[in-house]
């Protein structure tokens, strides 16, 4: 076949490759711009018009201000707590549910599954959910960032399908050796499902890292704010003033822009560093989700 690549085919190849290069540029450039701008000298940047292909001037001033900002470190710290504690709880409960609901011959599994799946179609909605949290006394507590999202039903269904595919012989031989269900789950099911566990860890972990809505609704106390809510203040509502107490008034307008860019970089770098791993596992997760009909 190779010998017969026609002109039409060659043109077709060129068009596709050009399109893909443009697509990649459009996808990546916003990040590159932010990266270059964050290292730029604020007064050079304000005069610069159009695309940046490298930082204009060089300054670490905005990074210094970002790291000195107590809200950024509070946000980082809180988000780390929510990611670690939240993901641990997510994985524990999801694997309990996936294991229990994939066993055969257990009573109530049918009705419980129905009740769980029903929540994917219908919910109480924003206001009753908020009032419920209020009645439970969970507003303005760290639990508000962990408990309401303790199980993702979608993830539960994916894990359950994966557990259901584990050969029954493995379970039976363990049971003959006197293992109970907890041991079977932790010493057989989880070890043989490591890829799916990795996918779940990443799904849940990134979800907690990026979680914003629950914080917006349930938290008023700034000491509990996750990074995303701090970011919203800086990027959307423009509250960079607290960071600039040491900066002379004249320079404030100048440096405000570069602070935003540095903040975006600081908040996104962990995801970017993990991205190569994330990507591989996430894709696997989507596939598992889609094959499970």
């Amino acid at each position: 076949m190779k010998t017969h690549i026609s002109w039409g085919e060659r043109l077709f190849d060129i068009c596709i490759n050009v399109f893909m290069v443009v697509l990649m540029a459009v996808t990546l450039y916003p990040f590159l711009y932010v990266l270059f701008a964050s290292f730029s000298n604020p007064s050079d940047l304000i005069q610069h018009q159009g695309l940046l292909l490298m930082p204009t001037g060089f300054s670490l001033e905005s990074y210094k201000l970002v790291f000195e900002n107590p809200m950024i470190s509070i946000g980082y710290f809180n988000t780390l707590i929510y990611v670690v504690v939240g993901t641990t709880l997510n994985l524990t409960l999801t694997s309990f549910a996936a294991y229990a609901l994939s066993r055969k011959g257990v009573r109530f599994v049918g009705p419980i599954m129905f009740a769980i799946v029903f929540t994917m179609f219908f919910s109480g909605g924003l206001i009753p959910t908020y009032l419920n949290m209020k009645h439970l006394g969970l507003l303005d507590t760290r639990w508000a960032m962990i408990l309401p999202s303790a199980i993702s039903t979608w993830n539960l269904l994916v894990m359950r399908t994966s557990f259901a595919g584990i050969p029954a012989a493995l379970e039976e031989s363990a049971r003959i050796d006197g293992a109970n269900d907890f041991r079977i789950l932790f010493q057989i099911f989880i070890p043989v499902s490591l890829p799916i566990m990795a996918v779940m860890t990443l799904f849940y972990g990134v979800g907690h890292w990026n979680a914003y809505m629950d914080a917006l609704i349930y938290l008023r106390d700034k000491d509990l704010y996750p990074l995303q809510l701090v970011l919203q203040g800086i990027l959307i509502t423009n509250s960079t003033d607290s960071m600039m107490s040491t900066v002379a008034d004249v320079d404030k307008g100048l440096i405000q822009e570069t602070i935003k860019y540095a903040t975006i970089i600081v908040a996104t770098v962990p995801i970017l560093l993990l991205y190569p791993f994330l990507q591989r596992y996430f894709v696997k997760g989507v596939m598992l989700g889609s094959i499970k009909e």
């Binding site: 914003y212 970011l231 975006i264």
Partner: peptide, 8 residues
């Protein structure tokens, strides 16, 4: 995160 995307 949606906050970063919106911020940009």
């Amino acid at each position: 995160s949606i906050v970063v995307v919106s911020g940009m």
